[in-house]
Simulated scan of single mutants.
Amino acid sequence: MFAPIVFLTTLVSLVSAESRAKNPALNAALRTAASNYDRHDLLPKDSDWVHDFTKHTDFTSSVGAVLTADGASMPALQGLGMTVSLLKLAPCGMLPPHLHPRATNTVTAFTGNTTTWMIGENGVRTIVTQLTPMKMTIFPAGSLHVMQNVDCEPAILLSALNSDDAGTLNILPALWTVPEDIIRAGFGRKESFNPQEVGMAIPRVGTGAIIGSEECKKRCGIKPSEG
């Protein structure tokens, strides 16, 4: 008898608070506004047109964070087809394997040295880039991608997506919401592979960032308890 779901809480953890509109009624009204004049009437304050990334609860996270301005967090973006995220990566900070189902993503580095990996679909080669300051790369819609700051100093990058509701799917936490025997079969493993044990070690989505590879942690002198 297999467990139907390895983590009952994982599905909830895949949805961040940022994904939900702060004022759904305002977002709905902006979607159906008859004209630009009507949109402006719904956004009457100058402050409606400013997003302060420093006010985000994860701005000072020790592992880094994805700080997002989209239709949900900044209603003025509703219907404009754009999301902008500030990516803060701690030394060895990483954005785990994920994809955006509804948007193409460009990422530009301002500080640090970030390695990216992108896989567009089965059979195509993995694209590897090195984002040092003032360099940009592209992750087409639906492509799987991973990023890690390989420096021992923090990195700052800016992410832009061509949707105000791009969505993010973190691959490993998502996979671990299906039955254990399906996971085991997918990995081509039998009894020697314990999905429950492996799944418990997968970081939750959290701030969107985690501390990355053991090689980087060792090189930068990051203790296991810090990662």
Results as ranks from 00 to 15, higher is better:
Met1Cys: 15
Met1Tyr: 13
Ala3Arg: 14
Val6Trp: 06
Thr9Trp: 05
Leu14Tyr: 14
Val15Cys: 12
Val15His: 08
Ser19Glu: 15
Ala21Val: 03
Pro24Ile: 06
Asn27Gln: 14
Asn27Cys: 13
Ala28Arg: 14
Leu30Val: 08
Ala33Phe: 15
Asn36Glu: 15
Tyr37Trp: 09
Arg39His: 10
Arg39Ser: 07
Pro44Ser: 10
Pro44Lys: 12
Asp46Asn: 15
Asp48Thr: 07
Trp49Val: 07
Thr57Lys: 15
Phe59Glu: 14
Thr60Cys: 10
Ser62Trp: 06
Ala65Lys: 05
Val66Ser: 09
Asp70His: 14
Asp70Glu: 08
Gly71Arg: 08
Ala72Tyr: 11
Met74Phe: 01
Pro75Asp: 02
Ala76Tyr: 00
Ala76Trp: 00
Leu77Tyr: 13
Leu80Phe: 15
Met82Asn: 11
Thr83Pro: 03
Val84Glu: 04
Leu86Cys: 13
Leu87His: 02
Ala90Asn: 07
Met94Cys: 07
Met94Gln: 07
Pro97Cys: 11
Pro97Lys: 05
His100Gln: 13
Pro101Lys: 05
Thr104Tyr: 13
Asn105Thr: 10
Asn105Glu: 10
Val107Cys: 03
Val107Pro: 03
Ala109Arg: 07
Ala109Cys: 04
Thr111Asn: 12
Gly112Trp: 01
Asn113Lys: 07
Thr114Trp: 01
Trp117Met: 14
Ile119Ser: 11
Gly123His: 13
Arg125Ser: 05
Ile127Asn: 11
Met134Lys: 09
Met134Gln: 02
Thr137Tyr: 02
Phe139Asp: 10
Gly142Ala: 13
Val146Phe: 08
Val146Tyr: 02
Asn149Gly: 04
Cys152Leu: 05
Cys152Met: 04
Pro154Trp: 06
Ala155Pro: 02
Ala155Trp: 00
Ala155Glu: 00
Leu158Arg: 01
Leu158Thr: 10
Ser159Phe: 00
Ala160Tyr: 00
Leu161His: 07
Asn162Gly: 10
Asn162Ala: 09
Asp164Ile: 02
Asp164Gln: 09
Asp165Tyr: 13
Asp165Ile: 08
Gly167Thr: 11
Thr168Ala: 04
Pro179Ala: 14
Ile182Leu: 14
Ile182Trp: 03
Ala185Trp: 04
Arg189His: 13
Glu191Trp: 09
Ser192Met: 10
Gln196Arg: 15
Val198Arg: 02
Ala201Gln: 11
Ala209Thr: 12
Ile210Phe: 11
Ile210His: 02
Gly212Lys: 00
Cys220Trp: 00
Gly221Glu: 11
Lys223Tyr: 11
Lys223Ile: 06
Pro224Ala: 09
Ser225Arg: 04
Gly227Leu: 02
